[in-house]
Design a protein around this nucleic acid. Sequence first.
DNA 1: CAAATCTCAGCGGCACTGAAATTT
DNA 2: CAAATTTCAGTGACGCTGAGATTT
Lengths: 163, 163
Amino acid sequence: MPTEHYAPRLVPPQRLWRLPSWLVNQISVLAYRLVIDAFSGAGFRRDHYAVLSGLEEYGPISQAALCRRLGIDRSDMVAVLNLLEHDGHALRRPDPTDQRRNAISITAAGRRTLRRLDGLVARAQDELLGPLSARERRHLVSLLQRLVDFHVGTPDGAGDSVE
Amino acid sequence: MPTEHYAPRLVPPQRLWRLPSWLVNQISVLAYRLVIDAFSGAGFRRDHYAVLSGLEEYGPISQAALCRRLGIDRSDMVAVLNLLEHDGHALRRPDPTDQRRNAISITAAGRRTLRRLDGLVARAQDELLGPLSARERRHLVSLLQRLVDFHVGTPDGAGDSVE
DNA sequence: CAAATCTCAGCGGCACTGAAATTT
DNA sequence: CAAATTTCAGTGACGCTGAGATTT
């Protein structure tokens, strides 16, 4: 027999409520759910979108270079590209200038898919940022960018023809 | 034969760089690494810290209520409490007023551990927020809190003696 | 009976490690 | 030879689902 019939407003512990890492993780899970839901109908995942984005922007590029730019592990990249290649969204060819590398490129079908996913992503962002004004959204994005920029830093110099 | 010997500044794709959900996820991973590293030496995980925080703040409480406040799944909570109970950091007793529930409470050892973890967490936050001023940190936290608050909303009324 | 609670088994996405094979 | 690239096998934390047993 509940003693509270009115919405009790479930408050998280003060310790966590003040904790940037906890807050960021909560939002990350929320964003994860929104984007996953948006993509699931189309049969894609977040890494697929990230990789297609990278391929369109950078043109032919090696897997390792893509990994560095996207912050995706080399091992996961293999699996993602297997799928994208199998579905005809990406192309994997040996790099003529360096036999160790693959030259990955996006296909026309990949570009079409990317555009479709763009719309789904945009709607998810809007849901995520719900209560924030346009100005606050810009501010938030800018703060997050500074943090990412600071931490990613300059991991390594590794540039080449397919870089 | 690399053509760039100077730090190339690895830029993520514009699409992702402007995307709040992507940025948040990147920071979340950074925070994850920092906190995991901080805790690993002590043999704890993030949920352990969250649960101990909740137990100290709310006193004896049921598992389901704790789950609601912390945003942890009921299934994971079982496993975490098994560990905490085994290590003497938490106590699991049947709730006399409702036989379905467990009344979970923190022990003296749990409080000591919590204090120790507080210090580790604080250092990790500082590393995470590195480049931001105190004012910017407050602003960021406030924006994140608004988002969490908005999305968690008021999931359910479920209050009782152990709530 | 419906609803809530606790527990267990299991799944899928995700970040990551280690090692092998090849090439530079 | 050291270093980089691709690939594969496997690990662990994490968020979540479904179902069963019990109690309200």
